[in-house]
Write a protein that binds this DNA or RNA. Sequence first.
RNA 1: CGGAGUGUGGUGUAACGGUUAACAUUCCUGUUUUGGGAACAGGCGACUCAGGGUUCGAAUCCCUGCACUCCGACCA
Length: 416
Amino acid sequence: MLQSKLFTKTRKEAPKDEVALNAQLLIRAGYIHKEMAGVYSFLPLGLRVMNKISNIIRHEMNAIGGQEIFLTVLQDKNLWEKTDRWDDGKVDNWFKTKLKNGTEIGLGSTHEEELTALMRDYIRSWRDLPVYTYQIQTKFRNEARAKSGIMRGREFLMKDLYSFSKDEKSHAEFYEKAKQAYVNIFNRMGIGEKTYITHASGGIFSKYSHEFQTTTSAGEDIIHICEKCHIAVNAEIKGEEIACPICTNKDLKQDKAVEVGNIFNLGTRFSEALDLTYQDENGEKKVVVMGCYGIGLGRVMGTIVEVFADEAGIVWPEEVAPYRVHLVSIGNDKEIVKKYVDQLYSKLLEHNIEVLYDDRDVRPGEKFADSDLIGIPWRIVVSEKLMSEKMIEMKNRKTGEVKKMDEKEMLKCLKI
RNA sequence: CGGAGUGUGGUGUAACGGUUAACAUUCCUGUUUUGGGAACAGGCGACUCAGGGUUCGAAUCCCUGCACUCCGACCA
């Protein structure tokens, strides 16, 4: 991508109504645009990051047998009445609206009801189980108070997988697999070290659940961490003294964290209410056992920004960065420089390296400042001086390390 | 949903109740410049969130609404 063609621009100052670091940086660098409180549009750079995140999740969900689907946002009130979750007294963050004929409908904030009902058409026999379906789509939640930039919005992208198993045992096996898949996902996104499987109360309908909590000062939750087991307990759990569930260590470290994902055992809460049953090997009628597994993509993106950003701007881990290389030319108005960098740009593209090429005719200082702010992992600088030495300069955004090298070495450095 | 605060060019700020609403930045034109957000010159851009009121006179005081932010509660 030629930066001169990118319609977004960086800015020196963040709008004053934006306090959260993640939103300040993402707006300044041109990743997102705020529409209203808790509602953000994604611009080219931001969408690229979202797509990277989506693809990591897709890959890991497919690997454990997930099948991707796409459900509807518009929700049938009747289904939700059957599970007793339509009433505002029960679930208060509904967005509700009406059809022309007066029929009340809701905008989906989660999809257990719709999907469970849908599965009645396909699950009849024990042979039809298990089924694992997931989707990545927009959720609507009428939060009383949106805050923390893109980490807690009223409209946000979420990956939600639902598992349908024939019994508790089969469900428990998948639950463990899903847990491992989540570990893989957060590792690949670069926040694995700071992300803890966290024991939490199951909420209103689950016997047990696990959250994935990433430590950051921007977090809303308090967790108690056992470093040895890399596991945590959510402070919301009350009652007996908090101890590590694995080693029973009671000397836990307290920290603030963001819930980037969660997995729930739903049991038969929804399948019973909506009559999702099957016939087992003996012809007996059984209720399907369910689980649900969520990840908020925007929240993950915001968390990554919060965790790695420095004074100069965003620092993306390689796998979620909008581009791998930020190619910065200095003296682009000089024919020899431009010709060489254009050629280098094409070469990188030929090697399937995603490149943002700063071909603008602005001063070096501005280019460097923008590059730091945007946060692409590798910055490659070419200038007339470097060209005379047959060198390019490579800088690692994360470590700040700068190295002069020739083209060959550069390609090796990018693992080609 | 309780409490508090704030709304002024695209962005960030200023202006005692008193001229034509100021400054910086962005943006446009030109010249010079080119390794860490350049310099100079010229220029565009706000009926001060909306509506009402007080006053000879309102960005400024009062009321209503809307929006945004923060603290708390909530968060399947």
